[in-house]
Nucleic acid binder design. Sequence first.
DNA 1: GCCACCGGTGGC
DNA 2: GCCACCGGTGGC
Length: 220
Amino acid sequence: MEKRRSDCPALPPGWKKEEVIRKSGLSAGKSDVYYYSPSGKKFRSKPQLVRFLGNAVDLSYFDFRTGKTIAGNTRASRDSATSHTARRASIYHNKPLFWEKRLKGLRSSDVTEESLRAMDLPRACIGPDPSEDCLLWAIASALHLSSAPISGQSTSAEKNPGVWINASQPPCRSFSVTEQHIREQELVVDRARRSLEEALTADTLARIWGSTVFLCLVAA
DNA sequence: GCCACCGGTGGC
DNA sequence: GCCACCGGTGGC
């Protein structure tokens, strides 16, 4: 009788998978798969898991029988070269809201250590945290985790976010990206690249200059 | 009353 | 025809 519980990397830490072979009856030889939560609760089907885990874990691509996430269906899994990265991406895929929380408060800055201006974001945030920071990181994680277009929430979510909010879309009113937006953003990226290039050049020159002075002093 | 285990069936 | 899902029940 095969009755070994094993870890299940596709689920949060502490979850175990068990496969039980039927010993008798018409279905002898077939097997049943069960999952156990960290607290020991037993689950007999995927719908049951989904009901329990709710929005905490995205089980759309989770195969109940094998215990694995079906490969190639998320941008995260396609982009991840190593198993470590894949696991980390998988955790974030399962918990986009936690990721947004972790990144919240971080901000880019330039060489003068002055905080850069935040991006222009879609108006009318939907959900519990209407801040621009939260929305920015929600958009960033949506871009990373999905190959689908990022378009914001449906009008239903606006009426009742508690029921209709779509976790794979950022929490803002539906928006569209125009050619004008793309051109403006290209200019921003171009300016940022040139600033970086100048900063690196200045740094390299300073290092060469410093080394030269040092060598001259040693020689003298 | 609980639960491990197998049967039944609806959806594909 | 297969199988995921869940109902039912026998054994404790």
